[in-house]
Amino acid sequence: MLTFEEKLAIIESFPELQRNDVSLGRVNFHFEESVLDKKIVVYRLHPNGNGFVYAELINDDYSVDSKGMVNIRDFSEMELLKVIKQSIESLSESEPFEESWVNADSQNLLLVEEYGTWNIYAGEMLDGSYATYNGAVDYLHQEGFRRLQDEDLKK
Rank of each mutant, 00 (worst) to 15 (best):
T3Y: 10
T3V: 04
E5T: 06
I10L: 07
I11E: 11
E12A: 04
F14P: 05
Q18P: 11
D21T: 05
R26Y: 00
V27A: 10
F29C: 05
E32Y: 00
V35G: 05
L36F: 14
L36N: 01
D37N: 12
K38L: 01
Y43I: 05
N48F: 05
N50A: 04
G51Q: 11
F52G: 07
E56V: 07
L57Y: 06
N59P: 09
V64Y: 09
S66L: 13
S66I: 02
V70C: 01
R73P: 08
S76H: 02
S76K: 11
E77W: 05
M78F: 13
M78P: 09
M78L: 12
E79F: 08
L80G: 05
L81W: 08
I84E: 02
K85W: 00
I88A: 01
I88W: 04
S90I: 14
S92N: 10
E95L: 11
E98P: 08
V102T: 04
N103I: 04
D105A: 14
Q107E: 14
A122I: 08
G123V: 08
G123D: 00
M125Y: 09
L126W: 03
G128K: 07
S129F: 02
Y130G: 07
A131Q: 12
N134R: 15
G135Q: 08
V137Q: 00
D138W: 03
E143R: 13
E143G: 09
E143I: 09
F145V: 04
Q149K: 15
E151W: 15
D152M: 10
